[in-house]
């Protein structure tokens, strides 16, 4: 199997993955609706919170504070749906047909993850544009915006890989969908929607130690303060490490499934 042939197969299956998502509005609408809805609500509900003397950022609108979290939340929705579609392919027998064809095994996972990353990038761009239309600004300019898109794509790879690992392990859409609340918990118990400096007691301590906080905080500094390579490096580096580990886990689960099926 030549390299060009493998790339062509990845491209075709990635396209199928992206088109499959777009053709099911129930798959992608929540990934836009819920982050935007929550951002709209929180920017009004917590408008006065930014005036508190203990609020750690000098911003005009809570919308600017919540921008990175909204991208992350939207990407989490999309990544779960991508993994759910893989489980649907396993349930429906499409994966068995792929295995019977001369397609390299790695292409199955790579194409699914590439589809998720492409979708997440598009999602991050759209969400940012909507925020800009409603008055948010990105202090770090174009480099910060690019970093946010890349963070979204890498997170989609990481979260999508974990979802794919569960899909390979269980072969069930229901099980994959059932993991979404866990991601939601991970996002919520972080600095996503409120600064950890203003969280009290054990909850604040947990949120500060949540890896999501370590990704969101530098991404937020890029949007609120200015572009800094150290912040971009921290956000992208952590996402990349997470993606690499998660892809390794997903590959392992794929190999296990191939051995047992």
């Amino acid at each position: 199997m030549s390299a060009s042939s493998t790339v062509a197969q990845v491209a075709i299956l990635s396209r199928r993955s992206v088109l499959g998502t777009f053709r099911q509005p129930q798959s992608w609408v929540p990934g836009f609706f819920f982050p935007l809805m929550l951002a709209a609500v929180y920017s009004s509900q917590f408008a006065k919170v930014v005036d508190l003397p203990t609020f750690p950022f000098e911003i005009d609108s809570f919308l600017e504070f919540i921008l990175p979290a909204s991208i992350l939340q939207g990407v989490a929705f999309g990544a779960t749906n991508g993994a759910s579609d893989l489980a649907a392919d396993i349930e429906g027998g499409f994966i068995d047909r792929l295995l019977a064809s001369p397609v390299p095994r790695q292409v199955i996972l790579v194409s699914r993850l590439a589809g998720s990353a492409i979708f997440a990038s598009a999602q991050a761009i759209v969400l940012m544009l909507v925020f800009l239309v409603f008055g948010a600004s990105i202090a770090g300019g174009f480099p910060a915006a690019i970093t946010l898109v890349l963070v979204g794509a890498l997170l989609a790879l990481g979260l999508g890989s974990l979802g794919c690992a569960i899909a390979f392990r269980s072969g069930s859409q229901e099980v994959v969908q059932g993991t979404f609340p866990l991601i939601f918990v991970l996002i919520f118990v972080s600095s996503a929607f409120f600064p950890t400096e203003l969280m009290e007691g054990w909850y604040g301590a947990v949120a500060e130690r949540n890896p999501m906080t370590w990704i969101i905080d530098p991404a937020r500094r890029l949007t609120i303060e200015e572009f800094a390579w150290s912040d971009a490096g921290q956000a992208l580096g952590l996402c990349a490490v997470f993606a690499i580990v998660a892809i390794a886990v997903a590959s392992g689960q794929q190999r296990r499934r191939l051995r047992t099926s």
């Binding site: 203990t54 918990v185 919520f188 118990v189 409120f194």
Partner: peptide, 16 residues
């Protein structure tokens, strides 16, 4: 989870 998360995340919001 909501009662724990909202109470924890927005613990300082009640200063408003």
């Amino acid at each position: 989870f909501f009662v724990v998360a909202f109470s924890g995340s927005f613990s300082s919001a009640v200063q408003v």
